[in-house]
């Protein structure tokens, strides 16, 4: 499903990140652990096609993505990747439901209320759909982020520190939900984190 080999990236000439090769199959979960400054977020942004690597390859379903143009990358990202950012950010003027539908809208897909309803039910946020995102708690916001990432049935879900702002209980819940949901839609799940609590939950672990 997702395969990367010998990715490298540098912000400036002084320091170059070289990432190990890895792959992640459909329905599997890959945990990428690393302390601050080891290039976790850089790697995630490379995978999310927000940054273009200096070398190496990223393949999803055997399509090479590292060499896509900015426009193609945007389309690819919108339709095949679900991204959960470290801090749950939303379009603050829209309700939870509209934030979910926005994912459909911006990917030029049909806005599917059923999908939003279904995901909200699975994630236990169905009662929050009409609220403004700023009124939610941290755990709730993170769940809405997950729902948004899943709106377009992506092939790969990328999560950047999804649990770092959550307490143990919520951390456990969120990880469970993430794993279940990605299994449900058959997506590969990549979690990038420094959160050592997650180490025991996963088999596939890469340390940067």
């Amino acid at each position: 499903m997702l395969a990367c080999s010998e990715l490298s990236f540098s912000y400036d000439t002084k320091k170059t990140f070289n990432f190990p090769s890895f792959s992640c199959e459909k329905g599997e979960t890959l945990l990428i652990l690393g302390n601050s400054g080891t290039g976790k977020t850089t790697l995630l942004h490379l995978l999310a096609l927000l940054l273009t690597p200096n070398g190496g390859s990223i393949k999803i379903n055997n399509n090479e993505l590292a060499t896509l143009s900015a426009k193609e990358a945007t389309k690819m990202r919108a339709n095949h990747l679900g991204i959960i950012y470290q801090k749950p950010h939303f379009v603050s003027s829209l309700s939870v439901l509209d934030n979910l539908l926005l994912a459909n809208y911006l990917a030029d897909r049909k806005e599917s209320k059923e999908q939003a309803q279904k995901l909200a039910t699975n994630l236990g946020i169905v009662g929050l759909l009409d609220k403004k995102t700023s009124m939610l708690s941290g755990g709730e916001q993170q769940r809405v982020s997950i729902a948004r990432a899943l709106m377009n049935n992506p092939d790969v879900i990328l999560a950047d520190e999804p649990t770092s702002n959550l307490d143990d209980e919520n951390c456990e819940k969120v990880i469970q939900l993430l794993e279940n949901q990605s299994k449900n839609i058959g997506a590969a799940l990549v979690i990038v984190t420094h959160d050592q609590r997650l180490k025991d939950n996963f088999k596939n672990i890469i340390t940067l």
Partner: peptide, 14 residues
């Protein structure tokens, strides 16, 4: 709203 804009850009908005 720079973050919001970046978010929407990352979600596929041109």
């Amino acid at each position: 709203r720079k973050y919001e804009m970046a978010l929407m850009l990352s979600m596929g908005a041109s």
